[in-house]
Amino acid sequence: MTDLKRAVFARISSPYFPILTGLFVGIMLISNIAATKAVVLFESWLHFDLGPLHVNGLVTDGAFFLFPLSYVIGDVISEVYGFRAMRRTIATGFAAIVLASLCFWIAIELPAAGFYESQDAFSAVLGAVPQIVAAGLAGYVVGELLNSLILVKMKERAGERHLWARLIGSTVVGEFFDTLVFCSIAATAIGISTWSDFINYVVIGFVWKTLVEIVVMPGTYAVVGYLKRAEPSYREGLAAADQR
């Protein structure tokens, strides 16, 4: 018989997966706010024409330095925990971003206090977020699902070998479609109005995110290796595979 006078708690099966999910969702939330700012890098000296593309600095947004890390974490989750776990993580992030957008809208619509002088600035920054959120949701759902699915399918064919190929191959496909979808929806929200700037925005975003994946790959290898050794269920899966 259950002793109802004793406190009972559920046990967390993995101490690492919730941390990865929390980091992933946090990065997505912060990125959707930071991305409302249009950024031009190296505008003072980087100028050239390439066919219809007129480059006057590198056009990007305020989340360019952070957002690529979501793909690194997505790769780690997909490699260690599988596609089903990554789908749950994506769904959690989706719900958190929608909730944040709803809360921002409510906060903007609430009557401002007479002594509050920043209502216009508050609305200008967070008021652009719904379009950025729509862009982010569409882009990251498409991109992250493709990234995870391709990585997992490649792993099913190669086993534990060629992790580098899975990381790069899945990132190239996922980041391309993520960037294309996101930029197509978000461009007008941050003030991009010409085809040249739009192409610049897409190309720079895609190349930058892919390069980040390559640069941090040693760290990704280290984290993946640690988790594979630390997770008992992964070790059990490897042992069962060796016995076949």
Rank of each mutant, 00 (worst) to 15 (best):
E156A: 06
E160T: 13
A138H: 01
G114S: 07
F198E: 07
W195Y: 13
A91Q: 13
W195H: 09
P218L: 04
W208N: 15
I214G: 04
A187T: 01
L149H: 02
K155Q: 09
L180E: 00
I106D: 08
V202F: 15
F206V: 13
V141N: 00
F177V: 05
S118Q: 12
R161W: 01
D178M: 05
F198S: 00
P111K: 04
H162Q: 15
P111G: 00
V212E: 06
P218Q: 03
F104R: 07
M86F: 08
A135G: 07
L146W: 09
N200Y: 05
Y81Q: 07
Q119W: 10
V173S: 13
G174N: 01
A138L: 05
W164H: 04
S170R: 00
C183R: 06
F206W: 12
G219E: 06
K209R: 10
G114R: 04
I90N: 02
W164F: 07
Y201G: 05
L145N: 07
V80Y: 01
E213C: 11
Q131L: 09
L211D: 11
T89W: 09
W105D: 12
T188W: 07
V215F: 14
R87K: 15
C103F: 11
G114Q: 13
V212F: 09
A165E: 05
V202I: 15
L211P: 10
I168Q: 03
V173D: 01
S78T: 12
A91N: 13
M154G: 00
A189E: 07
I90E: 03
S101E: 15
Q131I: 06
A112W: 08
I106E: 08
V216S: 09
C183S: 12
D197A: 15
G191I: 00
E175W: 00
A96E: 06
R166T: 05
E175P: 04
D178S: 07
F206D: 07
V202L: 15
V212D: 05
E109M: 15
E79T: 14
Q131N: 03
R84H: 11
S196T: 10
T89H: 08
F94Y: 05
R157V: 15
S148G: 12
V172H: 01
G82R: 14
E160V: 10
V76A: 07
E144P: 04
V203S: 10
Y116M: 11
F177C: 07
V172D: 02
V133D: 03
H162A: 14
S118K: 07
I192C: 06
W105R: 11
F198N: 04
A96M: 01
E144D: 13
F83C: 00
A186M: 08
I214M: 14
D120H: 14
V98H: 08
A121M: 12
G93S: 11
R88I: 11
F198H: 14
A134E: 01
S101M: 14
V172C: 12
H162T: 10
